[in-house]
Amino acid sequence: MIALLKRDLRLAVRAGGGFGLGVAFFLILCALVPFGVGPDSGALRPIAPGILWLGALLACLLSLDRIFALDHEDGSLDLLATSPLPLEGAVAVKALAHWITTGLPLIVAAPLFGILLHLPGAAIPALIVSLLLGTPALSMLGAFGAAVTVGLRRGGLLLSLLVLPLYIPTLIFGTEMIRRGQEGGSIATPLLFLAGITAGTLALIPFAAAAALRINLR
């Protein structure tokens, strides 16, 4: 499993676009929003939590189809399925690799982009914690969507159609947490919900994703 993680990370680094692309997309999104709603901090501040979470969501979505598509094309997926690794474990590891290459850089960059959107400093910890808790679920659900659509022509569009509705609970609690942080309220409730959703997702979705992969391989 560690070998698989190392290989995926190495591939992401060498093939390029692994670490940087998601963050670059995130930056562009955050830079474009003020053009749409105006530069006024009074207009930006209330929507900043939502923009930041939507940006993270979309940046995450961009690289989802790569989780399994490349391995499917070159036959690695067949070989992995016949290897001693349990496919559920392989799915979890590949989701983890996706999170390290896209989720983690987003979390590091998010406070910076929060400042761009006039997010008050008091909300920054809530922002980081919410992303830290929420993005693993995004990667895992994305891996599920990628497993369902692997090998389909025009799979990319379908992938977003399938995955984005699954992101709704995470999005709701994630933004709510930042909003409460912004207003100085207690963030405990959304935090617990967010952590619960992520924990449940990480525990159960690998099985669904592995089942979908097995179906797609035959």
Binding site: R7, E73, L79
Partner: peptide
């Protein structure tokens, strides 16, 4: 269990490695 080594048309070779 785990007796098979399978090789087919696709080699599962990663160009970047």
């Amino acid at each position: 269990d785990d007796a098979v080594a399978y090789a087919a048309h696709a080699d599962g070779v990663k160009g970047a490695l």
